[in-house]
């Protein structure tokens, strides 16, 4: 912490202070919600109405606008959770611990959505709801990792110890992330290869790609909103004996 320049250090120090974080999220929330709604509506209109039908799958491919952003989010949130967990573990920042555990249910929900929409898409296109190929199996393991994190945190009463345990579990589980991403290249899978997230040019027509990216961005905002709301609650619970929480409550009841 001593190697970081003074103003940056001060910014993070302030951000990591619970009352400041609480006030900041309250101020940011309306803006985040507004941006989320704009992105979501334009993404949905673009994807479900403006984008053309696919040459092979017709209109059925449109589930891509939920499935793919949800699957991206399942990986992204896991990384955020592991990074926040590591920061909490190394620098003992309470707020990082809270961000890590608040991310887990949101990530689990996106993983579940990716699995369900994938299954609904698989039945008409592939001819099956589920196969045990490397992509589908590793994504299911990701769901179990999220559930493990949530369960472990709930099982330990002392939230400091619980955060440490959860951070270690999350960090060990990071090994699954490249496995999920590269599963379609390393092994022969029923799931097709990457369309957008590859070095090459995306193999999706630009008129279909733009709504997909809008949806991905909307989902990112949704994650931030949902995670911050959970984090606020978790923070109040953990800090319930602190002076600023007491002040907050008395101010609101007056």
């Amino acid at each position: 912490m001593f190697l970081i320049p003074e103003p940056i250090g001060r910014f993070f120090h302030r951000l990591a202070s619970p009352p400041h974080f609480y006030a900041l999220t309250n101020r940011l929330m309306p803006w985040l919600v507004a941006l989320f709604l704009i992105l979501l509506i334009s993404g949905l209109v673009g994807g479900l109405y403006l984008a053309p039908a696919d040459y092979q799958q017709g209109d059925s491919y449109r589930i891509i606008y939920i499935h793919v952003p949800a699957a991206w989010m399942s990986l992204f949130i896991y990384m955020m959770m592991a990074i926040a967990g590591a920061i909490g573990l190394i620098w003992r920042i309470k707020l990082a611990e809270i961000v890590a555990i608040s991310s887990a249910p949101v990530g689990a929900a996106f993983t579940f959505i990716a699995l369900v929409t994938g299954s609904l898409w698989g039945k008409p296109m592939w001819g099956t709801w589920w196969v045990w190929d490397a992509r589908l199996t590793s994504e299911l393991i990701l769901l179990f990792l999220y559930l493990g994190v949530i369960g472990l945190y709930g099982a330990i009463d002392d939230k400091k110890t619980a955060s440490k345990a959860v951070a270690i579990l999350a960090l060990v589980g990071v090994v699954n992330i490249p496995i999920i991403h590269y599963s379609v290249e390393w092994w022969s899978t029923l799931h097709q290869g990457a369309t957008v997230t590859k070095m090459d040019k995306p193999s999706i027509h630009v008129s279909m790609l733009i709504p997909l990216l809008l949806m991905a961005l909307a989902f990112k905002f949704y994650y931030v909103i949902a995670m911050l709301q959970r984090a606020k609650l978790e923070l109040l619970q953990r800090e319930r004996t602190a002076q600023w929480v007491k002040k907050l409550i008395t101010e609101q009841t007056l």
């Binding site: 053309p52 696919d54 040459y55 296109m125 097709q192 193999s203």
Partner: peptide
């Protein structure tokens, strides 16, 4: 006993394909 279709990662409108 079972036949599953595998599709590729390309998405485009029919006119572009044509």
């Amino acid at each position: 006993e079972e036949v599953l279709a595998k599709h590729d990662e390309n998405y485009m409108p029919p006119e572009v394909k044509a």
